[in-house]
Design a protein around this nucleic acid. Sequence first.
DNA 1: GCCCGCATGTAACTGGTTACATGATTGT
DNA 2: ACAATCATGTAACCAGTTACATGCGGGC
Lengths: 181, 181
Amino acid sequence: MGRSSQTDMAVLGALSIEPMTGYALREAIRNVLGHFWSESFGQIYPALAGLEADGHVTRQGSTRPGSSTFTITASGRRRLRELLSQPIQPVPPRNGLLIRLFFGHTLGVEACRSLIMQAREQAAQQLREYEALAAQTAGEPQYADAAPFWQLTISAGRHSAQAAIAWADESLAALDAVPSA
Amino acid sequence: MGRSSQTDMAVLGALSIEPMTGYALREAIRNVLGHFWSESFGQIYPALAGLEADGHVTRQGSTRPGSSTFTITASGRRRLRELLSQPIQPVPPRNGLLIRLFFGHTLGVEACRSLIMQAREQAAQQLREYEALAAQTAGEPQYADAAPFWQLTISAGRHSAQAAIAWADESLAALDAVPSA
DNA sequence: GCCCGCATGTAACTGGTTACATGATTGT
DNA sequence: ACAATCATGTAACCAGTTACATGCGGGC
């Protein structure tokens, strides 16, 4: 199978903004939703095929490779609203950084310090990307009614990156007080 | 199968603090690591069996149900250090809240507002739990050398919850400026 | 005697990733 | 001509969850 309502939601959502090929869809999900969502390659095409069978999307151009774009239908928009309204599926947490720090006494203070610095740099990098993204989003008048919502997601990323940086600085200072084995 | 080095890391880590039964292990992972890690029931026992076969843990008491506790061996501790030193496996993001907000124009302003308020309350609840946890951790002298590291993970949770609250408040204000369809 | 919590395990299923296979188009 | 990129798909595999099956021991 490899088709879940989660994937359907992302695919229909992307197509609700503009019609695309499957390939472009994959790029759009990576580049635009990438900061908070991901779909693997092998899910998008089966999802599109299923959505087409259900009449939620139609295929323009031939079935033959190289040219077909997918367009969302009215029933597809209805389905999208339905999917968006479903309760959020909680994801079981799996934070590779925090579990290593939790066992930091075993891992060693120096390794912990280096992990935290690494995390700090990643967050700083993300922060720069969010700033760029915010500016870019503000400058595209054709998506005026969706833009405020996009800004919410960018703002979430910014807050979380800033929190990560503040935490990292605090933590590095705290580690200085720990006897380094 | 159902056995990954990730699970081994969590199991060995927990047993490095004190010997436990498989059942207690599950509880410990849920209650103590729960804020940033999870292992499902069906993974723990196969992992224990595998670790026993590899000589990383030993079983005290009989094989018969009801009484055996697992203890980490010297080779288990070595293996744990090895696992903790491995590069962090990046988890593909799947944020159910942000993807709904991204398509907020389709979902509707009111539904978005309600999702954000929900998220805010969850974060506030978590914040209270972290405060309690921090106090509790500080008051247990037998784990004195591990406690500073545990505080790091609690601090991470606190920062992230605080960021979520600040973001939610900002976002609710921003939504007031959006024409409510 | 019965139910509940502790304890150990297995089997089936699902969701998701990776790698593979194929071919068209475009630019150098 | 050759490489890179666009494009569509499938098959095999893996990780993780859920539900099921079983039994002991203690309290009501």
